[in-house]
């Protein structure tokens, strides 16, 4: 039997101490007030290495409450290492309800995908961001990139996209495709495939971005203009897939390639596992899928 006196010390709700949460919360509010602008914050060490989503975890920890339902995805999947460990982390330190269903979640932490299902008002999408600065690979100095943002000097980014066209005949950037938020700040949407970029535009959900190692938080409020950079003669286009999902037959979704053997066999399946499972449960079958038993009977 345990009494409060003999209990071992437990974690504070959602792991972080209150002073850290206040600091992150202040950064989130300013990030929402200045859409697309990267707010510096005093990122903490988390019980997982940098690169495992410490920025997203800190943002989620500052936002989440006992009434929330959390979903965590890693490249669209609910069942991969990063997603499983972060979900278990919040179950342990915040005792929150978790789900894999997109529409049941109030807070969704994501690594590199936006769910296929349209997000709704009242949902918060938290992105894990490795490099928040879209200009970083063009200009390594933080003092310079900060000045470039202040002066709205984004010509370099267009030169980069132009060089893509000059070398490859088309814009070869396929992920972390830069966007302009509300006509002001150029922003890195984290390494989501550019297929997901249009989903950020005028989204009904609040989108928060946390970069732990780089110590930046930024945000896109709901109903905010998010435009992918392009040229008049080379307009922005998303990836297109020749075939539908091999398991559920879905068209117009983002697909992952799965190698089947060493003779060149492969298939393309939904990257969003929840979306794919739901379709298969509803009886949709792709060319390599197995018919749902109940639906088949």
């Amino acid at each position: 039997m345990s009494t409060p006196e003999t209990d071992l010390a437990t974690y504070n709700f959602a792991y972080l101490d209150e002073q850290t949460k206040r600091m992150i919360r202040r950064a989130i509010l300013k990030a929402i007030a200045i859409p697309g602008y990267q707010v510096p914050f005093a990122s903490r060490e988390m019980p997982m290495p940098y690169g495992w989503g410490t920025g997203g975890v800190q943002v989620t920890a500052a936002v989440i409450g006992p009434d929330d339902t959390l979903k965590v995805i890693d490249q669209g999947a609910d069942d991969t290492t990063n997603a499983v460990s972060i979900r278990a982390f919040f179950q342990k330190v915040a005792n929150v309800a978790v789900t894999t269903k997109t529409r049941e979640a109030t807070v969704i932490q994501t690594r590199h995908r936006i769910p296929e299902e349209k997000l709704t008002e009242g949902q918060v999408l938290v992105y894990q961001v490795p490099i928040p600065e879209p200009l970083r690979f063009l200009e390594p100095r933080e003092t310079e990139t900060r000045k470039m943002h202040a002066l709205e000097e984004y010509g370099l980014m267009h030169v980069k996209l132009y060089e893509d066209i000059a070398r490859n005949g088309h814009i070869a950037t396929t992920y972390a495709y830069p966007v302009k938020v509300e006509g002001r700040y150029v922003m890195d949407p984290s390494p989501i495939p550019k297929f997901d970029n249009p989903k950020m535009h005028m989204s009904e959900a609040l989108q928060l971005f946390g970069a732990g190692r780089e110590k930046r938080i930024y945000a896109i409020p709901p109903h905010t203009k998010v435009v992918s950079l392009d040229f008049e003669d080379h307009p922005f286009e998303v990836q297109k897939f020749a075939k539908p999902c091999a398991l559920c037959g879905a068209h117009g979704v983002y697909l992952d390639e799965v190698i089947l053997d060493d003779k060149g066999g492969r298939m393309f399946v939904c990257s969003d596992t929840d979306f794919c499972e739901e379709r298969r449960e509803a009886g949709h079958v792709g060319e390599l899928g197995v018919a749902n038993k109940e639906a088949a009977e």
Binding site: E18, V63, G65, L206, P222
Partner: peptide
């Protein structure tokens, strides 16, 4: 409850700022 009171207030504030 300082922890949960602050969380609930922040959530109201965040939603208000976002909308």
């Amino acid at each position: 409850s300082p922890v949960l009171g602050a969380q609930a207030t922040f959530r109201a504030l965040m939603d208000a700022m976002a909308r």
